[in-house]
């Protein structure tokens, strides 16, 4: 551990300007080339809803964001890699005044306790419901394998995702598409 005896050039200098669209807003910012995407979101943009729960190993899923339509673990990418992409974080999902059906589901069904994994969990649910509007329990469990939760035992999270699926299904196609686009 930490025993890289011959590390001489560890100052990873260099900066680069990147352009990203985050929660609908175009952002242009100069970042150190070694800055992690999650640090960019949290520290440069102040979007602290995206969390870090593991040592940049990508297992916990608390840093999951939606990037160009995919689930991405933002601790496993550099900010410069995200140049030119379209990102949605939990802050882009809904507001307190107008919660997204997924957020409503988590609230209604007690899908969160400490809330630390919740943003990443909801983003994974979002990308699931986008491609599978009526997931079965097993499909929900499978879609959430990349997101660990230590509080809920997943039972209420599954109910929350079903609730969201039902809510979305009861909406017009136009409304639904709007809620599943960023």
């Amino acid at each position: 551990m930490n025993q890289l005896n011959d590390v001489q050039r560890i100052s990873m200098g260099g900066k680069k300007t990147i352009h990203v669209r985050v929660n609908g807003k175009i952002i242009e910012k100069e970042v150190p080339i070694r800055m992690l995407l999650v640090d960019f979101l949290r520290e440069e943009l102040g979007l602290t809803g995206t969390h870090v729960g593991c040592s940049v190993e990508g297992r916990c899923g608390a840093c999951t964001i939606a990037l160009n339509g995919e689930n991405v673990k933002s601790c496993l990418q550099l900010a410069v890699q995200a140049d030119g992409t379209n990102i949605m974080t939990v802050e882009g999902l809904g507001t307190v005044e107008s919660l997204h059906p997924i957020q409503e589901g988590f609230w209604e069904k007690h899908g969160l306790q400490c809330g630390f994994c919740t943003p990443g969990m909801m983003i994974s649910a979002y990308n699931l419901l986008k491609v599978n509007p009526h997931p079965s329990t097993d499909e929900i469990r499978e879609a959430l394998v990349g997101n660990l939760c230590r509080c809920t035992g997943y039972e209420h999270i599954i109910e929350a995702v079903k609730y969201a699926a039902d809510t979305l299904a009861s909406m017009s196609k136009e409304e639904r598409d709007k809620l599943l686009t960023y």
């Binding site: 969390h51 939990v90 802050e91 307190v96 919660l99 609230w107 209604e108 007690h110 969160l112 919740t118």
Partner: peptide, 23 residues
């Protein structure tokens, strides 16, 4: 009563304030 939790809205919109969020 099984009411919804009062702490949830802030957590659901990414406005929770955890220790790492404090600088």
């Amino acid at each position: 009563r099984s009411i919804r939790r009062r702490e949830d809205p802030r957590l659901l919109v990414g406005q929770g304030t955890y220790i790492a969020d404090l600088t």
